[in-house]
Lab assay of single mutants.
Amino acid sequence: MDVFMKGLSKAKEGVVAAAEKTKQGVAEAAGKTKEGVLYVGSKTKEGVVHGVATVAEKTKEQVTNVGGAVVTGVTAVAQKTVEGAGSIAAATGFVKKDQLGKNEEGAPQEGILEDMPVDPDNEAYEMPSEEGYQDYEPEA
């Protein structure tokens, strides 16, 4: 019985440690998101679009440190934060509304985080759909 109880105690310690790591990862992701939003706020009209992409990228980098179902929630929060940063930029006159959601080359930025393969159960990952990809044929 002692062996059984000791095993359960060790398992509990492992769960607590994993929860603490997840909590730490979420806190880091939130900190990076805040950094990115402050970065966007300090940019001029020309830099705002690039700044919004930076927020998304920093958040995406930190999301990889967070495991399990938390990833889905962090990704949703990050996307809403990026959308909010863009709205703030438009409201303050840093950028025109028609410039939001495009990178410096004018290509749409939507789907940055949505296409990231995420499995809350950590069982399997699927690649994003290939609808947006084109076949590449090298020139002879």
Rank of each mutant, 00 (worst) to 15 (best):
E20V: 03
K97G: 11
V40I: 13
G36F: 07
Y133H: 13
K58L: 10
N122M: 11
Y133V: 05
T92K: 02
E104K: 14
S42A: 13
A69S: 09
G67K: 03
E114M: 04
E139L: 04
V48D: 00
A56H: 12
E83H: 09
K10T: 03
D135M: 08
T81G: 06
V55F: 11
P108A: 06
K34R: 02
G73M: 12
V49A: 10
G106N: 04
G106V: 06
N122Q: 14
V63C: 07
M1Y: 00
E110L: 10
E126I: 08
D135L: 12
Q62V: 03
E126Q: 01
P128M: 09
V118T: 02
N65M: 05
E123H: 09
Q62P: 01
V52L: 15
G31M: 13
Y136Q: 13
A19H: 06
G47C: 03
N103C: 08
G25M: 14
I112R: 11
V26R: 00
A17W: 11
Q134R: 13
Y39N: 03
D2K: 01
Y39H: 05
G101L: 09
H50D: 12
A90V: 02
E104V: 12
K43T: 05
E131W: 09
K34P: 00
F4E: 00
K45P: 02
A107P: 11
V49Y: 04
A85D: 05
E104R: 04
L8D: 00
I88F: 12
K102W: 13
T54W: 08
P138C: 10
K43A: 07
E137F: 12
Y125H: 09
A17L: 05
K34H: 04
A17Y: 14
T22C: 14
A17E: 12
E126F: 05
K102R: 10
G93V: 11
E57Q: 05
E139N: 13
A124L: 07
Q99K: 01
E139D: 06
V37T: 01
E131N: 11
A11K: 00
I88P: 11
V55G: 01
P120C: 06
E105Q: 11
G41H: 14
K58P: 01
K6L: 03
L8W: 13
A29R: 10
P108T: 10
A19Q: 01
A107T: 08
D115M: 10
Q62Y: 06
T81S: 08
V118I: 07
F94Q: 15
G86Q: 11
E83K: 06
Y125V: 12
G25K: 09
E105L: 07
K32D: 00
V63K: 01
V63D: 01
Q134L: 06
E130I: 08
Q24L: 07
K45M: 12
F4K: 00
N122C: 03
M1I: 00
F4R: 00
L113P: 11
K10H: 05
D2L: 08
N65T: 10
Y39E: 02
V3S: 03
P138I: 04
L100A: 09
D115T: 09
E104L: 07
V26Q: 00
